[in-house]
Design a binder for these strands. Structure first.
Length: 173
DNA sequence: CTGGTGATGCAC
DNA sequence: TGCATCACCAGG
């Protein structure tokens, strides 16, 4: 039988670490259309925000390395999950090489809009903090078709650097 | 529009 | 040790 190939071509192989080893704006834009896989879902990513490692007062990494922000500084392509407003979890993907902070907030996929509802739909908890998203597992990201075009807007719900155009929405057709 | 909710990080 | 801050959502 087909023993040399454990999986069929076209399977949802995770995006490689090199995809994430770039600046948050590039990673954010290219993350649109890719598939977030977990909890039986494989929906395409439709809305993201870039948080820059330096010079971005809206980014959690702005005030330096802390226990909470550790993965932002030390990993590439891992999940940064944190609790916001005492109630909702947000899923971010770390980027840049280790030693350089930077991450991308995944706000929505095709059928789930909103960062808090997205984590709920995927069953993401704080236990997912630090999960390697380049490994096939309970939560990872695999290739999907890029959107036809990208809308660029300011980020949602922040006070600092509210004028910066770092939110990206993927639109088809 | 507002309230609910709790971890975080910094001032003291 | 306290408390302002916070990348949200559901309900009026």
């Amino acid at each position: 039988m087909e023993q040399s190939l454990p999986r069929a071509p076209g399977a949802d192989d995770p995006l490689p670490r090199s995809f994430y080893r770039r600046d948050p704006v590039t990673v954010a834009r290219e993350l649109l259309g890719q598939r977030l896989i977990g909890a039986g879902r494989r929906s395409r990513i439709t809305e993201v925000e870039a948080y820059l490692g330096t010079g971005d007062p809206a980014a959690h990494s702005y005030r330096g390395l802390t226990p909470r922000t550790r993965v932002i500084f030390e990993t590439t392509g891992h999940a940064y999950v944190y609790l916001i407003y005492g109630m909702h979890l947000c899923l971010n993907v770390t980027c840049e090489p280790p030693g350089t902070p930077g991450c991308v907030l995944i706000r929505s996929v095709e059928d789930v809009t909103g960062p808090g509802r997205l984590t709920k739909a995927y069953g993401i908890t704080r236990d997912h903090y630090g999960t390697d998203l380049t490994q096939t597992g309970p939560l990872y990201i695999a290739p999907g078709p890029a959107p036809a075009r990208i809308e660029v807007t300011p980020r949602i719900g922040i006070r600092h650097a509210a004028d910066r155009l770092l939110r990206f929405v993927g639109l088809d057709a």
